[in-house]
Simulated scan of single mutants.
Amino acid sequence: MSRPVVLTRPIAQAEPLAGRIRALGRAVEVLPLLEITPLPDQAPLRAALAGLADYQLVAFVSPNAVDAAFAHIPGWPEGLRAAVVGEGSRQALIARGVPASQIDCPADPAHSDTEHLLQALDLSALRGARVLIVRGESGRELMADSFRAAGAAVTVLPAYRRAVPQLTPELAARLRALIDADAEWIITSSEALRGLIGLLQQLNNVKIVASLQHQHLIVPHSRIADTARELGCQNVTLTGSGDERVLAALQSRP
């Protein structure tokens, strides 16, 4: 009998991939390791997005950023370019009517991060341009700093809040059961992985953390793989961005 698969994406993006994994005959546990919530005050978000056509480039750092923004975008302005760091965000934009030809992303799906997005963009063309970055309340400053260094006028727009869930008795029981089942874990952010380790440490059982460190982790980005190894995880598969690659990694193992 195959091991269960734990899908740790935020709940809004989890079900489509979970359904495809079930279609492979695998048992799936959807266990969001980051809770995504709207900002209490939506007025600044609505105001900034009302002037979307005034920008020359809009960058979305994640599918969550796309979801939060499009709650206030009735239609994508004609000719406006978008930039994303991963395949999930690119597909989310296409699903909302943004033409694929207007979306910039890293050339290599195995390196879906800000560094490789910046390499894919013509930064010199952004001199004097207005650029909007849609992200969570906190995040890396590399993208904004690089656009400003290229001469762009950059607005960073917080669109949502993320947090590791609280360790309830129910969550503690689920974590213990999944560790005991020797599951395969699909981890989609470094923050989520650190949160998982933190939750397991709260169980006050060193063996549980050690057990996770030996279980199979499937990660889409090299930065997450590096984080996993820093945290002592020894069995890490780097797939590159996109659900197809995650599914292929699951199918390649017995």
Rank of each mutant, 00 (worst) to 15 (best):
I73R: 00
I11S: 12
A92I: 06
N235R: 15
A53G: 15
A181P: 12
L250T: 01
V134R: 08
P106Y: 06
L199M: 09
L117H: 08
R161V: 01
L199P: 05
A177N: 11
I103Q: 14
P220Q: 11
H214P: 00
A172I: 08
R174E: 05
Q213H: 01
G128K: 04
E78V: 13
L45Q: 03
G75N: 03
G86C: 11
V98K: 07
Q102F: 02
I197R: 14
S211A: 14
R81C: 12
I11Q: 12
A152L: 05
R161H: 07
V58A: 15
R20F: 00
I208A: 11
D104P: 06
I187L: 10
G97N: 13
L175P: 10
S138Y: 07
L238I: 14
R20Q: 15
L178S: 02
I186R: 00
Q251N: 05
P63G: 12
Q234M: 12
L117S: 10
A68H: 07
V209N: 08
S211V: 08
L31C: 09
A125N: 10
W185R: 09
I224R: 02
G240N: 05
Q202R: 13
R229N: 08
H221Y: 11
G19M: 13
D54I: 10
V209F: 02
R46I: 10
Q251G: 02
A69I: 13
L24D: 13
I224A: 02
L52N: 07
L199F: 06
A248T: 12
I208L: 15
Q202G: 15
L121S: 11
P40I: 02
N235I: 09
D145T: 08
T227R: 04
Q119W: 06
I133Y: 02
I73W: 00
V236F: 05
A18Q: 03
D41V: 06
A92E: 14
A248I: 03
V154F: 00
G86V: 08
M143H: 05
L212N: 04
R22S: 15
A228R: 03
E87W: 09
L142R: 02
S124N: 09
R9I: 04
R9P: 04
A177C: 09
G51S: 12
N205R: 13
P169H: 03
P44W: 04
D145R: 12
F60S: 10
R161N: 04
R140Y: 02
Y55P: 12
A92G: 13
G79N: 14
N64W: 00
